Simulated assay, not measured.
Amino acid sequence: MSEQVLVEARDGVLEVTINRPEAKNAMTKEAAEAIAAAMDRLDADGDLRCAILTGAGGTFCSGMDLKGFLKGEYPVAGNRGFGGLTTWTPKKPVIAAVDGFALAGGMELAMACDMIVASKGTKFGIPEVKRGLAAGGGGMVILPRLLPRTLAMEMAITGDPISAERAHELGLVNVLTDGPAIEGARELAARVAGNGPLAVIASKGVVRDSWLWADEDVNAKQSPYIAGVFTSEDAREGAMAFAEKRKPQWKGR
């Protein structure tokens, strides 16, 4: 167990905290591997419904640990990318709870999550060009899909950040909080965790994977994701609970 990442299960939600506040939670290879291991736990544990990824000490993640980079270390976990999350995703949802700064790889890590909760005053940016680098963890590709292309271009080639308030207005941030982002993230996670787990997994899969599906292929490509949902015990339980005006008792099967 790495001390650079803290992991705690709370009410069906796995809270994963980057724990390098003295370094503004700059990402190391050790931390990336620990995040990847936490996501494996998320998918393997039937009692866990989603995860929250956050940072200790009032900062989400300031990007790559440049001291490690100068020593030849890259903060990736195998083929899972920066922070163990930028080139793959677990089957269950992950919410980023962002305070302070999400910069460079830190912003790419936040965008790799399925939803973002941010506290007011937080800054998002990909300032790699200011250090003679480029946002190679997906920032230059994902950002123009989530924000207006001209704004994404501005952020990529000036390195200047945007505020959480503007990110929220443009739809990059789901929830903007007055206090710590973890509070809003827990509320959002509870809303997710209260739903049918198979349905949540299928819905995440379709929303993420359908980005580039051709219109004529949608039904055929979507069917494998949702077929098992409609024949599951949970589907019957959801319908019965609605008819009986009670809370569903999900079994995940």
Rank of each mutant, 00 (worst) to 15 (best):
2 S>G: 06
5 V>P: 06
6 L>T: 12
7 V>G: 00
12 G>K: 12
15 E>G: 11
15 E>L: 10
20 R>Q: 09
24 K>R: 15
26 A>H: 05
28 T>H: 04
28 T>N: 07
33 E>K: 05
35 I>Y: 06
37 A>C: 11
39 M>E: 07
39 M>Q: 12
40 D>M: 13
43 D>R: 05
45 D>G: 11
45 D>L: 12
46 G>P: 10
50 C>E: 03
50 C>Y: 05
53 L>Q: 09
54 T>D: 13
57 G>I: 04
59 T>M: 10
60 F>P: 03
63 G>V: 07
65 D>E: 04
73 E>Y: 01
73 E>V: 09
74 Y>S: 13
76 V>T: 06
80 R>H: 02
91 K>H: 02
92 K>M: 07
94 V>N: 08
100 G>Y: 01
101 F>C: 15
103 L>A: 10
104 A>E: 03
109 L>K: 05
109 L>E: 12
110 A>G: 08
111 M>L: 01
117 V>C: 02
118 A>T: 01
118 A>L: 00
122 T>W: 04
122 T>G: 00
127 P>S: 06
128 E>H: 15
128 E>A: 13
133 L>S: 02
135 A>T: 03
137 G>H: 10
139 G>T: 01
140 M>S: 15
140 M>E: 15
142 I>Y: 12
144 P>V: 00
146 L>Q: 12
152 A>Y: 00
153 M>Q: 13
155 M>N: 02
155 M>W: 00
157 I>M: 06
159 G>W: 02
159 G>N: 00
162 I>R: 09
164 A>W: 02
168 H>K: 08
171 G>P: 01
172 L>W: 08
174 N>H: 05
175 V>D: 02
179 G>D: 12
181 A>E: 03
182 I>G: 09
182 I>W: 06
191 R>T: 02
192 V>N: 08
193 A>T: 01
194 G>M: 11
195 N>Q: 14
197 P>R: 04
200 V>D: 01
202 A>H: 05
204 K>G: 02
206 V>P: 04
206 V>A: 10
207 V>A: 11
208 R>G: 01
210 S>H: 08
213 W>Y: 01
214 A>G: 05
217 D>M: 05
219 N>K: 14
219 N>Y: 11
220 A>I: 08
223 S>V: 15
224 P>W: 10
226 I>N: 13
227 A>D: 15
230 F>A: 15
231 T>C: 15
233 E>I: 12
233 E>N: 13
239 A>K: 14
239 A>R: 14
242 F>H: 13
243 A>F: 12
243 A>K: 12
246 R>S: 13
247 K>T: 14
249 Q>K: 15
250 W>P: 00
252 G>Q: 06
252 G>R: 04
